[in-house]
Nucleic acid binder design. Structure first.
Lengths: 201, 201
DNA sequence: TGCGCTACTGATACTCAGTGTCAAGCTAGC
DNA sequence: GCTAGCTTGACACTGAGTATCAGTAGCGCA
């Protein structure tokens, strides 16, 4: 059987990945993301450039793999909402896992987000990552509420933008205001003061 | 005076830029964006690699510079809306210039968007470009309606997502449905069926 | 304990994007 | 025509990312 074997390998692999990412984060914070080369990272971590590259593929991924679990967590959270809940409330609650994740250890997360926001390449890649979550969330939303694929995508996109913009705001305030409250405010901007546009439909 | 001189230079420069971009577009469509190198493009256009690079800076920009005017056009359109119009209607009308631009020559635009959507790197860069329009639009919106900076950003982001998602949908349908109507549908997804969330505020 | 399989490692070589520099050439404006 | 300043092409360089390959370490199995 190859299953247990593969499993131990995978455990080792993700442990190494985590270790490498942590060392690299220090280097990035010290030297800046663009300044630091794979040679630097490999040297700091005590492995070869080849190995470092194999673990992450791209330099951005070294930083951004930290965000990977959030997509699935949010989709699961959305699926766990009661069936009769309206879309916006369900979406607001679906991003709670993300909000909670940042609230868990704000200092580390602030440092991470500051690095990301200070680096255009990281901003762009993170954005792509978040966009990649859209289809899963939209499918879950459509299955709940019967919204059309386009409508589901639009609402999911708006909700994820609320999260992203709330995070940016949170970082700007140095974590001085609760992310939860900022996120509520962002959602409220969507759902109140929305005017009379198309209300006839 | 150096103004007239600079001006003629600039005219020549943008003419060359357009020509180069057009030649390059053909190469990209034939060989694929990632396959085509700057050497290929330069050879096809009859200039040196150095010169080609000077005109665009990055390979993505060769394709995406076509989208550059839209940001300012949309901001101007937003500022031109009547002051008492609600935010969502104003934003829907603000993106009309973009919609009109695609409707003007659908065949060319569809080909362009197909190339973009088939190429992850182009998707990502275009997304960044659109995100770069957000602050200008948000400032214009906040000045109109007195919305907070965060609220303005959230609404602008949602509106731009509507445009982007409508375009994706339009391309999927091969232009078989009016972009204008798809955009209306996307906006309607934001402004109707929004449930009871946070309506107390 | 020893064998064989497999995955991991590090070395090397390569392509290509993007940066910087420089001398030569062209052109608009005098 | 002259000339200042922009444009061009050539060249050299850094660094990301890809691909290959031989050596090795760990694991299951006999």
């Amino acid at each position: 059987m190859s299953t247990p074997r593969t499993k131990t390998r995978d455990i080792a692999r993700s442990a190494v990945r985590e270790e490498l990412a942590e060392v690299a984060f220090g280097v990035f914070c010290r030297d800046g993301f663009e300044k630091a080369t794979f040679d630097d990272l490999a040297a700091a971590a005590g492995v070869s450039r080849s190995t470092f590259l194999r673990y992450f593929g791209t330099k951005e991924e070294v930083v951004l793999c930290a965000f990977d679990p959030l997509g699935d967590e949010m989709t699961a959270a959305l699926r766990a909402r009661p069936a009769d809940e309206d879309d916006w409330t369900a979406l607001r609650r679906a991003i709670d896992p993300a909000v909670a994740c940042y609230a868990r250890d704000p200092a580390d997360k602030l440092a991470l987000l500051r690095l990301v926001q200070a680096t255009p390449a990281l901003c762009a890649r993170l954005r792509e990552k978040v966009v990649g979550w859209r289809p899963h969330l939209a499918r879950a939303l459509a299955e709940r509420s019967g919204a059309s694929p386009l409508a589901a995508l639009v609402r999911v996109a708006a909700a994820l933008d609320c999260l992203t913009l709330a995070l940016e705001h949170w970082v700007e305030l140095d974590g001085g205001r609760a992310l939860d409250a900022i996120t509520d405010e962002a959602f409220a901007s969507l759902t109140v003061a929305r005017g009379r546009h198309h209300e006839l439909r």
